[in-house]
Amino acid sequence: MSSQTHFIGLNTITRRFASIPPFSERLAKRITGQKASTTVVHAVEDVSLSVAKGETLGLVGESGCGKSTLGRVAAGILAPTMGQAHIDGAAVMRDGRKNTTRVQMVFQDPFASLNPRMRIGDTIAEGPIAHGLVKKADAAADVARWLKAVGLDAEAAQRFPHQFSGGQRQRVAIARALAMRPDALVCDEPVASLDVSIQAQIINLFLQLRRDLNLTMLFISHDLSVVRHVSDRVAIMYLGRIVELGATEDIFLSPHHPYTRALLDSAPRLAADGAPVQDIRPISGELPSPINPPSGCAFHQRCAFAQPRCSQELPVLRSLGEPREVACHFPLAQQGEPL
């Protein structure tokens, strides 16, 4: 397993969140002889992914699919319940603490991810100084360099987050991540809260930085068109598991998993000549809750092609003979469905 093809390696990651009821409730239940209920949220279940050096892997899914949780595990913010995350062969976390600075995260909400009481220059310089990457005396110059790299003026370092627009704040957040000289970035919905025209600017910034710095990226988004534009490969997640994985254009042009297909069909989009596609076909039913996942395939209740086997047996992610993996008992390609 070369660490170049598996630059970011996520091995059998499972992450569950257990909410333990407060002590008083446990005591009360103990006294009355009942069992205290612990709700377990199955955020991520048995996910293995790898991203090659310099590659961008898009992670797509809706709420509750676990993409943000997986991203946080990859960035070393959350420890997995089972499994391990690696960067260039080295474990990202040790003893529940992040052990590396080589992978950094860019968050969704540009205002919330910056300390409102710190000047952005201090925010950007804090990490590098604390880790000895930059000496205090050189900090200002370093900050200026990163601000320039993201398209902001050096004098912006003196200002506070609330004095910037959303797009500018997101640039600051990117500068902060880059100042740590990472090899990999995990971007959690970095353009979701931005206007369309600003979104375009930030996407272009990502593309440029990726070229200039040869970054490896895990790009998380619910927006299919954005993911399609920036990713080399895409992984589709549903209720904590990967349901489809492959090269971006392959997946978008001929999806093999019914959920991927349904997602593409239901998204409002514009045709090539600009005309709106009005025939959108919504997926029926509600997103299941990660606390009580359905038996067998998590998608079977909403799937147009479901069979009895789908509710009994969990489909495993497997390759269909091409560099594509699907977790489905009856993938579309094999059904002879027109793709």
Partner: peptide, 24 residues
Amino acid sequence: DYVEAALSTPLSSARVAFRHVLPN
């Protein structure tokens, strides 16, 4: 988020608690 961001640099808990959280 900003606390999570600071912790993920990674910065020590003590530093984050007293230099980031307390001022806010």
